[in-house]
Design a protein around this nucleic acid. Structure first.
Length: 577
DNA sequence: GCCGTTTTCGGCCCGACTGTTTTCAGTCG
């Protein structure tokens, strides 16, 4: 079983235990292990091979009991404990938990009293008004559960960051004009720049919260109000997106941003730290337990500071070692958008882009870049107007002429060359040699098995003219899974051959993803950012690439295109010599 | 079930909203 499957298994255990009203901390332990396994870059099996149970117990949240369970899963492909546990609860009952409004207590009650074991049976019981007869239930609860079922059925996948961010921005603009609203900001996974966002959290500081709530719940883009209180409301807006708005007093704004930015795991760790210092953290501030005195809350920096920690950038707040790093004063100095000196993956109307080389260059200059790599598609990709050898030579000459005309800016002639099924490239080495930069990528034959795909890419890396592998796993978020490729081997091969790996900044891709970028950095691989722009507006997508790099703990030195042009050219030529 | 600059045992994050209650339990984030 793979990491994600094992994680799912532990999640299931947690849910069943919850229905059985087991010790909630035990439930949390299983859930925690699920979360950790999901974000682990190394295969659990490899960890186990390396050092058996002891190595497994190095994984945070894994103790002796769970290590033994993982061992059993790896050895036998199943877990006896889980198989037994499953039989103790009707299978449909766990599914009820996925309905918003229904938690373990309600699920249990529905089963004990009405023998309900599926969503369909629950619907039927509600229509017969049987649920309202149960203790603690009423007509309104029945309505809410029905609405929950409806919500579940039309619930969308998590939104890609590139979709959620503009929606949030729109709401923020609308709230900012309110005279009652002082500061407005998005928090949650959006502020942490996670690649997908479940719902949008917005935070407002105001001394008149009710006025803000009234205005928010009546905005034109809102289609449904789920709940509305004095300081907190939830609504459904464009594309079925849930938006939660929370209002706090200005003197608590910092504590509230910290609290609502999360992640949950990060915050739990912080609060545990606070307890050791006899402090209590909530969304209103940091308080002394004994006296109730408030000692921080206006800014986020204050909150971290009273815990003797430096401020932690939101992109790092995933409980993946950032608190330990902060304690030791070893937080990375994350790359900023202003560190980016140029875009290294750009298409023009020579292939499937919409704008000319000149138009792209002008836009890049206006963004303050020092260089731009023109990397149109290669011949195999006919559908995208891939360049023939002749056309590419022509483009090289054209770029040469343009470079003579401009000052203080360098246009790099490049290509996004297709890696063919056998790992060979679309053009001869003689032609590749004439380019400043060669990006290699896979655009066809996605369905190869892992071994073949990995070899295919590694073979391309061994070509001394290939500088960069573009979108190394080929995923399209929410649409296409990554191709089967051994990412660890790919990273090792990149280190060995002096090839760079791209973080494709296009928000549907973000490929490499955060945790893989981090692994690459740790293995000494240099990464580079490219927007894959097909028009001038796309050059602005660099924002999302930088966010992904930051989530991967990358610093300026870890990225190719933070270098000034001379150093960049030097790096690009290194592999050839 | 995990974990340790209080601890190898006894803790384990915190509050808003809702609906059903007459003071609170359940759910959610």
């Amino acid at each position: 079983m793979k990491n994600l499957e094992i994680a799912d298994l532990f999640y299931n255990i947690a849910e069943i235990l919850e229905i059985k009203e087991e010790n909630p901390f035990r439930v949390r332990s299983y859930r925690k292990v699920g979360q950790v396994l999901e974000t682990l870059t190394e295969d659990v099996f490899k960890i186990y091979e390396r050092g058996c149970l002891a190595a497994l117990q190095e994984i945070p949240g894994v103790g002796e009991a769970i290590a033994r369970k993982i061992e059993e899963i790896l050895k036998t492909g199943r877990l006896e404990y889980y198989e037994k546990l499953k039989t103790s609860v009707p299978p449909g009952l766990v599914a009820l938990l996925s309905i918003p409004e229904i938690g373990p207590k309600t699920a249990r009650l529905l089963y004990d009293r009405l023998k309900i074991t599926s969503i369909e049976e629950l619907e039927k019981a509600i229509k017969e008004h049987k649920v309202r007869e149960l203790p603690g239930m009423g007509a309104k609860t029945e309505d809410n559960i029905l609405r929950g079922i409806d919500l579940l059925r039309r619930r969308k996948e998590r939104l890609p960051l590139g979709v959620a961010q503009p929606i949030a921005q729109g709401i923020i603009e609308a709230l900012k004009v309110l005279p009652e609203a002082e500061q407005v900001i998005y928090a949650g996974s959006l502020r942490r720049m996670k690649e997908t966002v479940g719902d949008i959290d917005i935070l407002v500081s105001s001394t008149k919260p009710e006025a803000v709530m009234d205005a928010f719940t009546t905005l034109p883009q809102i289609t449904e109000v789920l709940s509305k209180g004095k300081t907190k409301s939830s609504v459904i807006a464009e594309k079925g997106t849930q938006i939660d708005v929370r209002v706090v007093e200005p003197q608590s704004f910092g504590a509230a941003i910290q609290y609502f930015t999360g992640s949950k795991e990060h915050n739990i760790k912080l609060r545990e730290l606070a307890i050791h210092k006899e402090l209590k953290i909530n969304e209103y501030g940091v308080f002394r337990v004994k006296t109730g005195e408030k000692i921080a809350g206006r800014t986020e920096e204050e909150v971290y500071s009273v815990l003797d920690l430096p401020w932690v950038p939101p992109e790092l707040r995933e409980d993946r070692g950032e608190i330990e790093a902060a304690k030791a004063n070893r937080l990375p100095i994350l790359i900023e958008i202003s560190d980016i000196k140029g875009d290294l993956h750009v298409h023009t109307n020579w292939s499937d882009g919409t704008h000319t080389i000149t138009e792209m260059v002008e836009r890049a200059e206006r963004k303050g870049y020092q260089y731009l790599a023109i990397t149109d598609h290669s011949y195999s990709l006919r559908i995208a107007g891939g360049l023939s050898e002749e056309r590419l030579k022509e483009q090289i000459r054209e770029i040469g002429k343009l470079n003579e005309k401009i000052d203080k800016f360098e246009i790099l002639s490049g290509i996004e060359v297709d890696i063919k099924r056998d790992g060979s490239l679309d053009y001869s080495d003689d032609l590749l040699k004439q380019l400043d930069i060669v990006i290699a990528a896979i655009h066809s034959g996605f369905k190869m098995d892992m071994e073949a795909m990995t070899l295919r890419i590694i073979k391309a890396m061994r070509n001394k003219y290939v500088n960069i592998i573009a979108h190394p796993t080929g995923r399209i978020i929410g649409e296409r899974d990554p191709y089967q490729v051994d990412i660890e081997q790919q990273i090792m091969a990149a280190a060995e051959t002096g090839t760079f790996l791209e973080i494709n900044a296009f928000p549907d891709r973000l490929d490499l993803k955060d945790i893989h970028a981090q692994t690459a950095k740790e293995k000494g691989v240099l990464l580079c950012l490219g927007t894959d722009a097909h028009n001038i507006m796309h050059l602005d997508l660099m924002f999302y690439g930088v966010a992904t790099a930051r989530r991967g703990w990358l610093e300026r030195k870890d990225l190719l295109n933070t270098l000034p042009v001379e150093k960049l050219m030097e790096k690009l030529r290194q592999k050839r010599s």
